[in-house]
């Protein structure tokens, strides 16, 4: 049971959220201009790193806002939480549990 700090509502249990997969995968501005391979990349190909991963979460049982989280896929340590639309923070500051 992860504890995730919604940027708006604060710390809540994982069960209040829906997972939204990899963050910063923008919908292509002009899908028609893409090759099948490029479009397929957008649709189906996602990173699966062992380590820090920027991913989207929706606070579905709370404020219904989408936001981004940097979570370590091995330790589950969450080192950054930031609103949708913001760039991934470069500096990873330690967050104590």
């Amino acid at each position: 049971m992860l504890l995730i700090a919604c940027p708006w509502c604060g710390e809540r249990d994982e069960t209040e959220y829906h997972y939204g997969g990899q963050a910063h995968v923008a919908h292509p501005a002009d899908p028609a201009a893409l090759t099948d391979a490029e479009w397929g990349e957008y649709l189906f190909v996602r990173a699966n790193p062992k380590g820090d991963f920027a991913e989207r979460w929706l606070h579905s049982a709370g404020c219904r806002r989408w936001f981004n989280v940097v979570r370590h896929t091995v330790t589950h340590d969450i080192t950054a939480v930031y609103p949708a639309g913001q760039a991934r923070p470069d500096a990873h500051t330690e967050v104590t549990a």
């Binding site: 509502c9 209040e16 049982a61 709370g62």
Partner: peptide
């Protein structure tokens, strides 16, 4: 106030 769940109910 808070939006949350009580016994799985929002």
């Amino acid at each position: 106030c808070a939006q949350t769940t009580v016994s799985k109910v929002q």
